[in-house]
Amino acid sequence: MKVFLVICALCCFVAIFKLPIEYYTFLRTIVSLGALLLIYVWTKQKNYALTIVFILVLILFNPLYPIYLHRKSIWIPLDIITGILFLLIAFYSKKEPAKEEEKAVELPPLQKTYARDRIVSVKREI
C-alpha cells in the first residue's frame, strides 16, 4: 500500500507540468483509486476525520464526473497539497500501544513483605 500511495503522490507532483489531457485522466483514475483505498481502510479503523478529507479528494479527482476548474493556476496548489497528503500517509507510522501482557513481563519482580518481619524499636524513657 505504501508504494501505491507514493505513486499517487508522484503522479500529483508530475501534474504540475503542462501535459496532454490523457495524463490528467490517468491522474484522476490513480488518485481516485488511492483515495478509495484509504477511505476503506480508515472507515474500518473508525478514523472519520481522515475519511472525510479523502472523500473530498475523491470528489475533486473523480474520473466519472470530472470537476473542471479550467485554470492551471487553481489545479497546481491542489495537486501539491494532495501529493503531500499521500506522502504523509505513506510514511506516517503509528506506534501501536503495548499489550498488557507485555507490560506485566517488563516489570521487575517485587519482594513481598510480611507483617511478622517488622522490626519494632522500643522507645527508651530518660
Rank of each mutant, 00 (worst) to 15 (best):
V3N: 06
F4K: 12
L5H: 04
V6P: 01
V6M: 06
C8Q: 05
C8A: 15
A9D: 06
C12L: 01
L19S: 00
Y23F: 15
F26I: 12
R28M: 05
V31K: 12
L37Q: 10
Y40V: 10
Y40E: 14
W42K: 15
K44I: 11
K44N: 14
Q45H: 12
Q45T: 04
Y48I: 13
A49K: 15
T51D: 01
V53T: 14
L56S: 11
L60C: 09
L60M: 11
L60Q: 09
N62L: 00
N62S: 05
L64Y: 09
Y68E: 04
L69K: 00
H70T: 06
S73E: 15
W75R: 07
P77V: 07
L78E: 02
D79M: 02
I80S: 00
L85K: 00
L85M: 14
F86V: 05
I89L: 09
I89C: 10
S93V: 14
S93N: 15
K95L: 07
E96H: 09
P97R: 12
K103M: 01
K103F: 00
A104W: 03
E106A: 13
P108G: 02
L110N: 05
K112V: 13
K112C: 09
T113S: 10
R116I: 04
R116G: 08
D117T: 11
D117G: 14
R118E: 13
I119K: 13
K123C: 09
R124V: 13
